[in-house]
Design a protein around this nucleic acid. Sequence first.
RNA 1: GGGCCUGUGGCUUAGCCAGGAUAUAGCGUCGGGCUUCUAACCCGAAUGUCGGGGGUUCGAAUCCCUCCAGGUCCGCCA
Length: 555
Amino acid sequence: MYLTLCDKIGAILREHTGKADAMLTDGGDHADVASTIAFSLAKEYKKAPAVIAKDIVNAIREQVMQDTGATTLAVGPYVNFIFGNKYCSDVLSLAVRDGYGAGQTKSERVVLEHTSANPNGPLHVGHIRNTIIGDTLTRCFRKAGYPLEVQYYVNDMGRQIAIVAWGIATQGADINAEGKGDHLIADVYIEANKNLDKDSTLNEEIDKLMQRVESGDPETISQFKIPVKRCLDGFKDTLAAMQVKHDRFVYESDFIRNGDTEKLLSRISHLPEAKIEETLSLDLTNYGFEKNYILRRSDGTSVYAARDLAFHIWKGHNFDRVIDILGADHKLIGTQLQATLNILGEKAPEIVFFEFVSLPEGSMSTRRGKFISADELIAETERRALEEVTVRRPELDETERKKIASAVAISAIRYDIVRTIPEKSTVFDWKEALDFEKQSGPYIQYAHARACSILDKAGTFTPCYEAEGEGEIVLAKQIALFPKVINDVVNELKPHLLAIYARELADIFNSFYHAEPVLRAEEKTRNRRLTLVDATRNTLKEALETLGIDALRAM
RNA sequence: GGGCCUGUGGCUUAGCCAGGAUAUAGCGUCGGGCUUCUAACCCGAAUGUCGGGGGUUCGAAUCCCUCCAGGUCCGCCA
């Protein structure tokens, strides 16, 4: 609705001025949409922008009203457009329907890879930034109508895994011990690294393991596979707790076994950029990379990058759009991958990079055991949430309180992570993670629960799809923006836009709630406001679900 | 040393790519508001050299140059 009207206004402006760009911009407090086109015409027309704006308004006002129902006003040099009653009515009748905000079904198939942490220890608060960004994008794409498959790329044959396998074999660790597998593997991995640091000659044993696994030695393969599986089972539990699910786990080693990596290396070796020495590498200096991109080691084994290329070629052949979520430490290798796929004439992935999450005392490290695991974070947040729920709703039984606390905790965690732009590195802060107030997931859930509560008390009513008075109109217009926001997230791969949108919707609803009585209003107003509350409730629900947060009906 | 990212009130943060109307919001501080639809809330106040310096432009937080600070990468690791 919003975009449609903007398109129509843009077309009218372009036709009237003959300019290719209508210079439409956000109207802020002044308008629903505005144009700054008068500035750019000032020189050409040799007139003051404010005069030009006035002329434009006089010329197009009637047509804009006819085509869109919007009022056109000149405010200084700005041409402002304010949408009318019909816009609010149309929006409200759409917004009360289940699935509001969903785009038309698209045919473009999308594959999105996220998390893909090495199976050498539990997911920590750094990894889950990847997870939350990826899962929120996933939900936005699906909301926008795209068929999408989410993949986890399992590194099941790298050096880290070899170190785990070696640790199990040499340290007497019980791989079948009770408990969560990912934490068990971390203990082995940390100890193995200590042992390797003490005696660097032991690294030869790791090299041997890697050679054996790549050559297909069955015993070594199973030596790797067992800890990988235990670790992944732990990951799946953690991910499920955060409402995250992958459609497919793709194993790196499959691209060795099926010959794709060998085929890729052969193709690479025929490229003009190829450097065949003891190793096989690519000289990408013409593409702005200083160092050679090594793909095969001198002992004949493939490097991670080679398997990753094979994996991406496979993705490119099976999907129309390939998206990866990667930490900023992968920037170099990620852009080298893109460049190489371009040289090969294959589809290169779009990559969303996010900066690091560190601890107040420094950066996290699985190897050194310095991290806060996602499991710890979830447990602690749930504990705090349960305290909060118990204070607020002492009359509820424990099962009910725990259910709410769990949803509140995941909401707080997911929202806290997704609200910050990925380019900004962050320092993990318990105080902020455990904050259930303003600018938090629970705050938005609370606004939703409030709306539900009003509607529960209201009983049946006759819908009235209108907005009257500033408070109602501002709320209706915010509701109208939801489909646009989903669109923006998908086009720009920026999930934080949805987080901010949902919070602003909750803000506006809370102000409305305090300013305008609903249940106590006289009949026509009551019906109108109840309809608005219902539209808000539904939009909050859809937005929360797209953020991977439970839209609780009561808190 | 080179590449990339970041720097916005005491703290956290949006806006920057596609330059325009008094720079967004939260925490904290101060002052109000629960016999009234859930106070995980609302209303109001104070707090800003948008890291520094140049430049482009009618107009710069936004574009260009430069410097400073922090993070990160530059491995036959992933």
